[in-house]
Design a protein around this nucleic acid. Structure first.
Lengths: 127, 127
DNA sequence: ATTGCTAATAGGAACTATTACTGTTAAAAA
DNA sequence: TTTTTAACAGTAATAGTTCCTATTAGCAAT
């Protein structure tokens, strides 16, 4: 049934190979090193499929660009407003007050995005 | 110096008039009811200016579209993945564990986006 | 091996939200 | 009034993403 093509494998390996929370474009460049004729559409589709299957996660940053991450365990992200870099915020637990409030709103929560922004250690010291 | 034009006022009033967390497009439609010849570029520029001045806040949803909000006090948002609607999650305090972790990363935090998603009470009961 | 079926592909067009550019208008300053 | 300049309308351009069409490649049953 499900066919794990060379393209899909290359996409998954590209995302897994880095901690830089890559964008579709970065993955495209990376996959082209292995499969030079790969299509950008194929990269997008495979990223979407891998995300739907739960093999990777994806989140949209404050400028509307989607980033992907092979670490599917829940964690927070920080994005530098200067250089755009996204890094992990480790070991943080989110309080559960929200769950109560969301229950009261009669919603069915299936995910959450927690994204901090500011200046990273490098950009902070430049300006 | 700063000129508070009719266009800017209409933009601010449009955002303030609703709790629906409108997009630039919604604001554009609303402002055109008052100033039919207003330009979409003007709406975008004024939204950006009002945001920079702190009169409104803006946040990007999971599909990369920016939403605006005249309630500048910190609060959380929930977006329905079915109908796209954004609603407030009231009375939730965010724990401070993240601050420690972010300090250890030597970052200078200036904001955060907390966005839950799932099905709202209406869409939940349809499917 | 050949056929038929379907998933997956390459390539590119199309779409959407947003930004940038180019005169023009109108408010404030001189 | 004249000058200056912020803000404007209208439009072109951009970036990220999705959609479309013809083609290719893997699998199952003949």
């Amino acid at each position: 049934m499900k066919r794990f093509s060379a393209q899909r494998q290359a996409v998954l390996e590209a995302v897994s190979s880095t901690k830089c929370h890559p964008t579709a474009d970065w993955v495209y460049d990376e996959v082209r090193k292995i499969i030079p004729k790969v299509s950008l559409g194929t990269v997008y589709r495979n990223l979407a499929d891998l995300k739907a299957e739960g093999n990777i996660i994806g989140f949209t940053d404050s400028s509307g660009v989607e980033h992907f991450d092979a670490t599917t365990l829940p964690h927070l992200h920080f994005q530098c407003t200067e250089c755009g870099k996204v890094i992990d915020v480790p070991g943080v637990f989110v309080n559960t007050d929200a769950n109560e409030a969301l229950n009261q709103l009669d919603t069915e929560v299936c995910g959450a995005l927690f994204l901090y922004f500011g200046k990273c250690s490098e950009c902070k010291n430049i300006n």
